[in-house]
C-alpha cells in the first residue's frame, strides 16, 4: 500500500499518521518512559546516538548527491563544493550554523548565476 494507492481524501492523512506520527512519537514516548532510568553517559545511548547520527548523515548526503526538484539542475560538483565551503565557514566561525547556511547559499547561487550567463 503506497501513498497514492487508495484514492480517497483521508488515505494520505492515515498514511502520514502511521508512517509519520506513530513512527516518531513512539520514540519520544519511549524517551519519557526511559527518562531517569538510563544514564546519559551509558554506552547503550552512545551506540544509539552513533547509529542515528550516521543515518541522518546519510539522508543529508543523499539530499546533496541525489537531489530532487530544481536543485537537480545544478552539477554535483557545485553542490558538494558549496556545502564544503559552507561547512568550513561554519567551523571557522566557531560552529555558527547561520554562517554555514549563508555561505553555502551564496556559493551555490553564485555558481548557478555563473553557469547561466557563461
Amino acid at each position: 500500500m503506497t501513498f497514492s494507492s487508495i484514492d480517497t481524501w483521508w488515505w494520505p492523512y492515515l498514511f502520514i499518521l502511521i508512517a509519520g506520527w506513530l513512527a516518531t512519537d513512539s520514540w519520544r514516548f519511549l524517551g519519557v518512559y526511559l527518562g531517569g532510568r538510563l544514564s546519559e553517559k551509558s554506552d547503550l545511548l552512545v551506540l544509539v546516538r552513533c547509529v542515528a547520527t550516521a543515518l541522518v548523515a546519510a539522508v543529508i548526503a543523499n539530499l546533496i548527491v541525489f537531489p530532487a526538484g530544481p536543485l537537480a539542475e545544478t552539477t554535483i560538483r557545485l553542490r558538494v563544493f558549496s556545502a564544503a565551503i559552507g561547512f568550513a565557514a561554519f567551523l571557522w566561525f566557531g560552529k555558527n550554523v547561520l554562517v554555514g547556511i549563508v555561505v553555502t547559499e551564496v556559493v551555490l547561487l553564485s555558481g548557478m548565476v555563473l553557469a547561466t550567463y557563461s
Binding site: M1, T2, F3, F15, I18, A19, G20, L22, A23, T24, S26, W27, R28, L30, G31, V32, L34, G35, G36, L38, E40, L45, V48, R49, V51, A52, T53, L55, V56, V59
Partner: peptide, 28 residues
C-alpha cells in the same frame, strides 16, 4: 520512491531513533 506503508514507517522510525535519547536527556 514509491515505498509501501511498512517500508516508509520503518525508514521514518529509523531516522527518529535519536528522539528517544534526546527526550531522556530533557525529561529530568
Amino acid at each position: 520512491a514509491g515505498n509501501g506503508l511498512a517500508a516508509a514507517a520503518f525508514a521514518v522510525a529509523l531516522s527518529s531513533v535519536r528522539l528517544a535519547p534526546m527526550v531522556v536527556v530533557l525529561v529530568p
